[in-house]
């Protein structure tokens, strides 16, 4: 039972982080707060994928003293799985790209309506 909890408590904390981000995206009225919630949500999902890659007893995915050797036998269980790291590297950069476009749209909204609160924007649109 205690092993079961120790193996899984970090997954539960990632889900709590994801719930914090989702709650901020749904409930908060300020648009910057919504963007902050989106950032937290994406980071929690990236954290979950990175944690899938870790192996007990594995080191960093970099080979030592490997330059110039042709026939090197590598034991797979000694190295962490590098594939999720690569995919999440792409996801972090895409996250910042979406953040930039969201903030540009937000500046445009402020220029047109003069406020960032969602209910005041809805009142001025009518």
């Amino acid at each position: 039972m205690i092993d079961f909890i120790i193996e899984r408590y970090n997954f539960w904390i990632y889900i709590i982080l994801m719930m914090i981000g989702l709650y901020a995206m749904i409930t908060k009225r300020n648009l910057v707060k919504k963007v902050i919630g989106m950032n937290i949500f994406q980071t929690a999902i990236i954290l979950f994928y990175i944690s899938l890659a870790s192996k007990r007893g594995g080191t960093l995915p970099i080979l030592e003293h490997a330059h110039g050797e042709e026939n090197l036998t590598v034991d797979v269980s000694n190295y962490i799985n590098p594939l999720p790291h690569v995919l999440m590297l792409t996801a972090i950069v895409v996250m910042v790209a979406t953040l930039g476009v969201a903030l540009a749209i937000l500046i445009l909204i402020y220029r047109k309506y003069g406020t960032l609160e969602e209910d005041e924007i809805l009142k001025k649109m009518q």
Binding site: S54, T59, I80, I92, V93, V96, L106
Partner: peptide, 26 residues
């Protein structure tokens, strides 16, 4: 956790450029 490449990408891109974009927008 052992993901060094992801760690320094996060430190430069998300904590650096992301914060600067937020501050510029604010």
């Amino acid at each position: 956790m052992g993901a060094v490449d992801v760690a320094f990408t996060e430190a430069s891109v998300s904590a650096g450029i992301g914060t600067i974009l937020f501050i510029a927008a604010i």
